[in-house]
Simulated scan of single mutants.
Amino acid sequence: PSQPQVKRYRGRDTEHEVRYHVTRRGVQAEGFPGVRVRHAAPDVVRLEVDGVDNEFRITVHEGDRIHVDTPTSAHTLTRLSRFPDPTAQREPGSLLAPMPGTVVRIAEGLAPGATVTAGQPLVWLEAMKMEHRITAPASGTLTALHAAPGRQVEVGALLAVVQAAAQEEHAS
């Protein structure tokens, strides 16, 4: 079976994650015991919750803001990106997985504190039956290594961090 579709939203103080499958019988929610999706459309969702039908009216504003009228209250949510920009969350020199895959190999002797050179292969990923090399973005010191052989990684997963060597100033 395929992986569920995942949508994430931020409310006032919390984040919400909705997982579902689209099947021949319609939309099926995952992880919500006692909840059955009766109808799902862009403007209205009908759920059966423990045998009671509930209708939720949906209005989308400004692309990412969503207003939900429930039978007892109203909520405004912000849709979170499916693929957040990993550069905003990572320190400089972070090596991120460019695709989902399996770590098949780490460069021999590679450990935090090791000196690496720009373009040096550090980690090998297998994805789509092909092997992909992840190389050092700059010469410097490996400060963190999160990859391990056999580990499954998602796109954007932090594999390692290389702290670039300080640029030497040349006296004139």
Rank of each mutant, 00 (worst) to 15 (best):
V52R: 15
A41W: 12
R19N: 01
A97L: 04
D53C: 10
V44H: 05
G26I: 02
E55C: 09
H16V: 04
P149H: 04
T117F: 07
E62S: 06
T141R: 15
D53N: 09
V153Y: 00
A41N: 08
H39E: 15
K129S: 12
T14K: 15
F32E: 03
A29H: 03
V155N: 12
A157M: 12
R38Y: 03
D85H: 12
S139F: 09
I134C: 00
I134S: 01
R8I: 08
R151V: 13
F56Y: 13
E91Q: 10
Q167N: 08
R25A: 10
S2Q: 13
Q163G: 00
H39L: 15
T135M: 08
G101Q: 04
Q89H: 07
T117K: 15
V123W: 00
V22L: 12
P33K: 15
A157L: 11
E168N: 01
E30P: 03
P33Q: 13
T141F: 02
D64Y: 11
E91W: 09
T117G: 12
R65S: 12
R133W: 11
Q28M: 01
P42A: 10
V35D: 00
I66T: 02
S73W: 14
V103E: 00
A114I: 00
P92K: 15
V60W: 06
V123H: 01
P137A: 00
T115E: 05
E30Y: 06
G63L: 14
V123E: 02
A165K: 09
G109H: 07
A88M: 09
R25M: 08
H170G: 09
V6P: 03
G101Y: 02
L122K: 03
R65M: 10
P84V: 07
R38Q: 13
A111Y: 06
S73I: 08
E15A: 09
V18N: 05
P86N: 11
T70S: 06
P112L: 07
M128Q: 13
A97C: 07
L158A: 13
L142E: 00
V44Y: 08
Q120T: 06
R65N: 08
Q3C: 10
T59Y: 04
A41T: 07
A114F: 02
D13R: 02
R57K: 10
Q28E: 04
G63F: 14
E30G: 03
H39C: 08
R105S: 11
Q152T: 05
R36H: 00
R57C: 07
A107G: 02
T23K: 15
T135Y: 02
P100H: 10
R38E: 03
A29L: 00
G150E: 10
R82Q: 11
F83C: 04
R82E: 08
D64A: 10
V49S: 12
A144K: 05
E91H: 09
P149A: 12
M99P: 14
Q89Y: 07
T115I: 05
Q5M: 13
G51W: 15
P33H: 14
G140V: 00
D64C: 13
S172I: 10
Y20E: 02
V162A: 04
G156M: 11
D64N: 13
T115S: 14
T87V: 11
S172E: 12
A138P: 05
R10S: 07
L47C: 12
L110R: 07
D69E: 14
T143L: 01
I106G: 01
V68P: 01
P71A: 05
